[in-house]
């Protein structure tokens, strides 16, 4: 797994050529920060308002576990070219960072972080065995990222804690960036109406 990210060299890679999107590099520039620079959010011990927030965090953690498994399993499938694999590993690193932040917050609040399922369960649930080409994998990942971005943005209103709402905004925008890059690489369209997520 890569620990650093070079937006210039990544911008030249096949993922973006196949999508025909020269402008993809614009979106990548903001990702030059260290991958594991986790935001400093804190949660105090359980209060009644926090109970609901812990529930939201557990759902988010389950989502990140699934995303990590999807990238890891699809990344190891041999279907991805080096350039695409490099990008997938960057995104995998983001999801691992999200997972760590969420698990830490849940623990700090007195909860027990939800555990990941087995690879076999993820393969079945996500129908990963049906992916036969690099294009299939990119489209599949784009769908997961779109759903994740919507899940985060759509749950902000349910959070009682403003710091957690900020964290969910950060998580949602990370997923939105992933989706934008993958969607363009897959040749997907973009909605004309504003407010793409939430």
């Amino acid at each position: 797994m890569t620990d650093t990210f070079d937006p210039i060299s990544l911008g030249r890679r096949a993922l973006f050529r196949t999508g025909g999107m020269a402008a993809a590099g614009l979106g990548l520039a903001s990702l030059g920060a260290p991958l594991m620079a986790a935001p400093k959010h804190t949660m105090h011990k359980k209060s009644s308002a926090m109970e609901g927030d812990i529930g939201v965090l557990q759902g988010a953690l389950a989502l990140e576990h699934e995303g990590i498994a999807a990238y890891r399993i699809a990344g190891g499938s041999g279907l991805l070219s080096k350039g695409v694999l490099d990008v997938a590993l960057v995104f995998l690193g983001h999801h691992q960072g999200h997972r760590d932040s969420l698990a830490k917050l849940i623990s700090e609040a007195g909860g027990k972080p939800v555990e990941p399922k087995s690879d076999a369960e993820y393969i079945k649930a996500l129908n990963i065995a049906s992916l036969k080409s690099e294009g299939d994998v990119v489209k599949f990942a784009a769908g997961l990222e779109q759903g994740a971005a919507n899940a985060y943005v759509g749950q902000v209103a349910a959070l009682q804690d403003h710091q957690l709402a900020h964290l969910f905004a950060q998580l949602g925008t990370d997923e939105a960036v992933h989706w934008a890059i993958l969607n363009n690489a897959a040749g997907g369209s973009i909605a004309k109406a504003p407010y793409l997520f939430g």
Partner: peptide, 16 residues
């Protein structure tokens, strides 16, 4: 459904 529910749900499988 794909956009808003697809992060956690699918038709055929239990996920989140």
């Amino acid at each position: 459904y794909q956009a808003k529910c697809g992060g956690c749900h699918s038709l055929e499988a239990n996920r989140i």
